[in-house]
Design a protein around this nucleic acid. Structure first.
Lengths: 112, 112
DNA sequence: TGAATGCTGAAGCATATGCTTCACTATCAA
DNA sequence: TTGATAGTGAAGCATATGCTTCAGCATTCA
C-alpha cells in the first residue's frame, strides 16, 4: 500500500470522513477559525487540527495564520476536480446507455 | 472511530483508492467480470475481490453471478450522490463569492 | 506582568485497511 | 471424469488512521 499519492486519492479520502465533510460544508459558507470548526465537533482540538491537515494536504482547504488565529477557506478547484472525475464517468456511462438504446432500436425496431 | 456508516462516507472512501477508481472507470464503459477487472491490476485475485466488496458496499457497483462468472456493473445513482454533494457545496461557495462581489461593488462602486 | 486564549506537536494506543498465501468450491469443456 | 477456469473465504501481517493526553508556545487582554 502506497499512501494516497494522487490528488484525487487525497481529495476523496479527505471527503470520506463525516467530520471533515462537515468542515468543508461549513467553509463553503465562509471562512472560519480552527476553534470555530472544532466547536460543534465532539472531539479534541488536536483531533480537529489533524483533520484539518488532511484537508489541507488534499488541497480542499487552505489556511493562513494571523496572530494566534488560523483562518481556513475552501479551495473550490479541488472540489471541482473531484466533481469533474465523477461527472465524466457518469456521462460516459449515460452515453453508453444511449448507444445501447439506439442499437436495440435499430435491430429491433420498425424503421428501415 | 465508527467505520464508514453514511452512504457518502462509503462512496468517497471507495473512490479514494486508485485501483478501485480504475475499476469504476472501466465499468462505465460496460460490464466486466472479476477476472477482467483484475487482469491489469497488479495484485492477487483475492485483493481484487476485496476491493470489489468495498465498491459494492458503497453502492457504486453491483454484481450478479451466472455460472462461475460474476459480472459487475456501475450504479450511477451512487456516482450521482457523491457528485451532487460536491456540486451543492461548490455552488454554495460560488453564490457566496457573488454576494461578496455585489457587496463590494455597492460599498465601493461609482453607481448610486 | 500574568493569565487566558488559540493553536501546535509528540507519544501512544485501538482499530481499520490492504495486501498476501493457501485451501477450497463450483462450473465448464474435452 | 478429469482438468482448467473463476471466484470465495479465512488467517495473518504491515502499515495507516483516528483518536487521546499532555506538554508546550505565541498572542492578546486585563
Amino acid at each position: 500500500m502506497l499512501q494516497h499519492s494522487d490528488p484525487l486519492d487525497r481529495a476523496f479520502h479527505a471527503l470520506a470522513d463525516p467530520g471533515r465533510r462537515w468542515m468543508v460544508d461549513r467553509l463553503t459558507r465562509g471562512p472560519a477559525s480552527v476553534s470555530e470548526l472544532a466547536q460543534p465537533l465532539d472531539m479534541s482540538m488536536s483531533a480537529v487540527v489533524q483533520h484539518l491537515k488532511v484537508l489541507e494536504a488534499s488541497g480542499l482547504v487552505r489556511s493562513t495564520k494571523t496572530g494566534r488565529i488560523r483562518t481556513c477557506q475552501v479551495q473550490p478547484d479541488a472540489l471541482r476536480a473531484a466533481e469533474g472525475w465523477l461527472n465524466t464517468r457518469r456521462l460516459e456511462w449515460e452515453r453508453r446507455l444511449d448507444r445501447l438504446g439506439d442499437y436495440l432500436a435499430t435491430t429491433n425496431g420498425d424503421e428501415q
